Computed example of a mutant assay.
Amino acid sequence: MPDNKITLAIVDDHPIVQEGLQKLLAGATNITITGCFTTGADFIDFLKKHPLNIVLLDISLPDVNGIDLCREIKKLSPATSVLALSNHNERSIIFQMLQNGATGYLLKNISGEELITCINETMKGEFAFSNAVKEILARPSANELREIPKLTKREKEILLLIADGMTTSDIAGALHLSPLTVETHRKSLLQKFEVKNVAAMIKIATEQRLI
């Protein structure tokens, strides 16, 4: 097979999506679709035996989360580029896919021309995003627009330990404080971040690069 030929697989549990993608790619003579799969397990079995340039990967699959599957694909075949293809337009999901090794993220309303452009960008070693995704990434999230809370040195210390998964008693022991003092700081942190739970606090703190 010539070097400019691109081998590609589609993993999506909707046959109509698979058919639509095949039609969109029919005019691209340098792209060969080597397989279409409705489950992550079937695709992994295929990938173990067949080297592949690119996989178009849906996030919602019947047997596995596409975000987890992306990590598994990259472990099994680091040379295979993963392009997420999804209806999910949340920034957090886009970033999770990229963190797990995806080379790009496309929404399912993508045009054929855009799709082929993104595939070719990926083959050049570039990150590829559909126009709709570029718009989402360009818009700051509500958390990024929040004013960064002013934390005391002790609060920053406790925030980092909470983010590491330490309990109140663990933190108390590590910092030689009473559990009551740690709880007071914890409540103060939740108030400053204007959230009701630790998970939301850590999410905002991460986006604002405090941890």
Rank of each mutant, 00 (worst) to 15 (best):
E155N: 06
K203H: 12
E144N: 03
Q191Y: 11
N131W: 01
S178W: 03
A132E: 15
E126A: 11
L159I: 10
A199G: 02
L175R: 05
F193G: 08
P149A: 07
P149C: 03
H185P: 01
A132D: 14
T167N: 13
E144F: 07
S178N: 00
L161A: 00
S141K: 06
L160I: 07
F193T: 12
S169H: 13
D170R: 05
I171Q: 05
I158N: 04
I171M: 12
A172I: 13
P140H: 06
N120T: 13
T184A: 05
A172V: 09
L161T: 04
N120W: 12
L189V: 09
M201Y: 04
A205D: 10
R139N: 09
M166A: 03
E207A: 05
E157S: 09
T181Y: 10
D164T: 05
M201C: 02
M123Y: 08
L189I: 07
A199N: 10
M201S: 08
G125E: 04
A132C: 02
M123S: 13
K156F: 04
A128S: 13
A138Q: 04
K187E: 13
S130K: 05
E157W: 05
E207T: 01
N131H: 11
S130P: 02
I148P: 03
K203Y: 11
I148V: 15
I136C: 07
A128P: 14
H185V: 03
K134L: 14
L177F: 10
L161Q: 14
M123K: 02
L145C: 05
L189T: 07
I204V: 15
R139C: 11
I158E: 01
L151F: 09
I202F: 03
T206L: 09
K156E: 13
L190H: 03
P149M: 06
R139D: 11
